[in-house]
């Protein structure tokens, strides 16, 4: 790719970002809060596996939101399902 084309693409991207500013700002806000939630869940798991109610207690997040993130972290290989504790499964951090 020529430098000229690269430059043109950069310009076009700039314009596109301008046009989509509102939605980009919204998404950036969502990324921020999502990253914060993921971090606090991961922090809660640092000292060992926990169930969703235990994570909820530790993070003060709504339990259904904890569940969604735990399921997602599991899907992307950051958390694994551990042993069962009563009616609940414990979730453990996978060393990255």
């Amino acid at each position: 790719m020529s430098d000229k084309k690269k430059q043109a693409d950069k310009e076009a991207m700039k314009i596109l970002r301008q046009q989509r500013k509102q939605s980009i700002d919204r998404v950036r806000g969502a990324i921020k809060s999502q990253n914060k939630d993921i971090k606090s869940i991961k922090d809660a798991l640092k000292d060992g596996g926990k169930t969703v109610p235990e994570i909820t207690a530790a993070t003060k997040m709504p339990s259904s939101r904890v569940m969604v993130f735990v399921a997602t972290l599991k899907k992307y290989g950051m958390v694994a399902e551990g042993p069962k504790d009563g009616d609940y499964f414990k979730y453990e951090l996978i060393d990255a």
Binding site: T51, V52, P53, T56, S63, S64, V66, M67, V70, A71, K74, K75, E81, K84, D87, Y88, F89
Partner: peptide, 16 residues
């Protein structure tokens, strides 16, 4: 599936 098992979406409890 999302959990790879059947648990409650609200808190991960295995339903009785």
């Amino acid at each position: 599936g999302p959990y790879m098992r059947v648990i409650r979406p609200s808190d991960g409890k295995e339903p009785d």
